[in-house]
Design a protein around this nucleic acid. Sequence first.
RNA 1: GCGUCCGUAGCUCAGCUGGAUAGAGCGUCGGACUUCGAAUCCGCAGGUCGCAGGUUCGAAUCCUGCCGGACGCGCCA
Length: 602
Amino acid sequence: MATDLFAEIVRDIQAPLDAWLTENGAEPQAALARPTRAGSGDLAMACHRYARTFRKAPQAIASDLAEVARQHPLVVKADPVAGFLNLTLDGAEVARRTLDWALTDDGALGRSQARAGQTIIVEYSSPNTNKPQHLGHCRNNILGSTVATLLATTGAKVIRVNLINDRGIHICKSMVAYRHFGEGITPEKAGKKGDHLVGDFYVRFDKAFRAEHAAYLAAGGAIEDKDAYFNSTDSALGRETREMLQAWESGDADVRALWTTMNGWCEAGFAATYARMGVAFDQIYKESNTYILGKDLVDEGQAKGVFYPASNGAMVFDLSRIGLEGEKAVLRSDGTSVYTTQDLGTAVARHDEHGFDRMIYVVGNEQDHHFRVLFGILETLRPELKDTLHHLSYGMVELPEGKMKSREGTVVDADDLMDGLHAEAAEAGRERWPDLDAEELARRAETIGIGGLKFYLLNYAPQTTFTFDPKKSIDMKGETAAYCLYAYARATSILRKLEDADRGIEADFSVLEGEQPRAVLDAMLAFPGEVEAAARELKPSLLTKATYGLATAFATFYNSSDNRVLGAEPGAMAARAALVRATRRMLGGALGLVGITPLEEM
RNA sequence: GCGUCCGUAGCUCAGCUGGAUAGAGCGUCGGACUUCGAAUCCGCAGGUCGCAGGUUCGAAUCCUGCCGGACGCGCCA
């Protein structure tokens, strides 16, 4: 079973209201919703919008609708207030139904069939094999992975895809540096993760190249621009790197061997990083295999008149066809393809292979323009792809001292970050549980540290460019995973002490009509709707906010001595025990969607 | 120059398919552990929602114009 109880209740109460509106010649426009203003009941509807149709004051319309609403058995009060219709529901009955649902129905955990029958490809991570992943990749990985989870939970068949950028001039830079300075070192000999070792050589290349450029300028060289110098014949390192790329393309055995070795190191490093983050993929594509794709499409497009040769010899697309300016080249004048060509080919190949209903690219917002162009060309070329392509664009992560810049050493490395979070959580844990054995301490620190990172990164809306404060990210106060985990652990603890003492006792749900238990029930009822919205809007922040909402409502509940479970009257105990049990189930499920396995004790 | 995104409390951010008194976390200050775990809870203070117009019964939300910021606009990836 997977139902959204709140949606069901609203539909049920709404139906006669809509029928009344229709009978009286108005088109029902608004749904009942939670009132924003406290003390306005459980459900409310603004009636002002019908005033014109009925030529009547909103308040009078609200009064008429109140009359209709009062017929519903769940409605105990229907008040017209200032043109709003405010409904109060039978609290004990709502509590009974909510807890029954929250304890047994998977719909309470956000599961639904809303996307049944849809195949959705989610592409995320897409790292380069020349350096280790950093904080920006963390946001990408976790965003992509959670979006995939949300879509799968709501019924879609999801294919998680990673397109590894393992070829190109930037990869050759690390290889050139290794040739010069490597001296046969390996990750094992260096005692280092492979991606970090490769990254060291990438940095080493940049250092050597800058020294070369400086010497060149000091000797009276004329090319000041670094890129121009790199691409000139004056730069020995530039020449060597370009020659290596050519050798790679022509299949040179030595170059291919070094490439295979170094990429292997890097990918092994990535695998460890992904495993620790709990990020996984169904398919891994490599650009070294896909970069040739797309050339056939160019021929096809040329035949259809979508592409045409420009005066400079390149094959181009007229961007005015998609409301942009200028032309976009898909083949250089020498006939070689560009990045966009490959993306075109990959998209069509995936569509041929999977017949997806949607494909979502999780890529930073600096590529917004690229995706507008890419989708525009694809939809022109293959009209059946219209409305299936989506760029989940997200903002950069900045640091309190500004942007991350690798040259200035302000990049936050993903592995270092996770280590730091773990260490911080472990230190707090040592104070809290001085007698805990090291293994269990490490397990808890890992959940709190890595879970904290996930929750923190997801809690911002994707488009938001936000400032990541490493100190605050490891602070366990506030809207954090640790807070939610603590609420879960306390619920567990109460149930442990309860030892099923509530079994067989008839619950008195009227004790849950107070403000605090009511807030917990409301958070439960709201949860599936938030999960659905998070999936629909590709916005996992709605999930973390809903999770925190449930945790904080529960924290308020359990802190008040009015709501004690143990030692309460049997009927009250049974009702509160059901609330605690349901909270534990739902919090566990919610954290699971965030990618966190809750701790039973912390 | 053009395009996209952003501007809400001291800080970091929600709210944006128009609804009632604009929210949260952090921080500050003040309270609550002899009672289910204080990594918790309660309370105080703190906002001309960048500015100016417009639409509307009603605007943080929609429209226009400014100001301020980020990112793009390649035969790079």
